[in-house]
Design a protein around this nucleic acid. Structure first.
Lengths: 139, 139
DNA sequence: TGGCACATGAAACTTTCGGTCAAAACCGAT
DNA sequence: ATCGGTTTTGACCGAAAGTTTCATGTGCCA
């Protein structure tokens, strides 16, 4: 199973937005796309979904752009994942009555384990871990 | 992210094979396909991959078919998952140097959590849990 | 009016989910 | 030993769906 680049981009975009103050000017899609490493056209679609999930806010007009809708402490990797893909791990067998009960339980437990892990890490933590690492280059 | 039906079928097929003695006659693909709930043509492709991973053995000829290559205690859900999809959860960002270190760590931890969970449950356990459940219908 | 988000649509590409077919291996009977 | 039927094997093919990207036009705000 492979993670889509879409979710990858979404996480990088949120992280990038988390790295600057929410009170400052909104960040333009063009800029964001450059740091994320994709095209602005594609990133817009992702940002719209993130906005629909309430993770991000947009500002129109001349000095428009995007900024975080919540504090980085309140945004988890799981939230971004769900916003991008609908669900973190959807296993149809879990709700299939023809699937043996034991197998259903096994899938359910695997899925729950991934979800818990993804919802446990916030972008404040990710940001700090990235920042600390970057400092090491300057020592 | 959605689990492919291929992996779902693979797990059901292995579970079905685990439910009968390995010393008995091999189970025909046609029968297996019926209990799994898919076409024999498609299931064959899955079984070939399971065989390549050493989870299943095949017998040719008139009384041919498939049987488990290992004891159910030695086959985990993770093994079947990897045999079917190559890897349980592939996150390209983990090996991307352009990805911030903190984000890489977050992905790595989520992926490890899922892998551990999938490798923890064996088909002996799944079989027992399903069997116990089935008995309840007869009480 | 100009810059920008927003919305939509379509092209290019990959993956999924199977179907089809011929050949190889095996068994049982002749 | 040979023949015929059964079954796996493995490759190729193809429609359908999803992914990723680009392009175009519209509406909003300073």
């Amino acid at each position: 199973m492979k993670l889509s680049v879409k979710t990858d981009y979404a996480a990088r975009a949120v992280l990038s937005l988390a790295s600057l103050p929410r009170e400052g000017p909104a960040r333009k899609v063009e800029e964001l796309a450059e740091t994320v490493g994709t095209s602005a056209n594609y990133l817009v679609q992702i940002l719209i979904e993130l906005k629909g999930a309430g993770l991000v806010d947009s500002v129109r007009g001349k000095h428009g752009g995007y900024r975080l809708a919540k504090a980085p402490e309140e945004i988890t990797l799981g939230m971004v994942w769900r916003a991008s893909e609908g669900s973190i791990l959807d296993v149809p067998a879990i709700v299939d009555d023809d699937c043996p009960a034991g197998l259903r339980e096994a899938w359910k437990s695997a899925s729950a384990s991934l979800t818990e892990s993804a919802d446990q890490v916030t972008f404040a933590q990710i940001l700090e871990a990235s920042g600390r690492d970057r400092e090491m280059y300057y020592i």
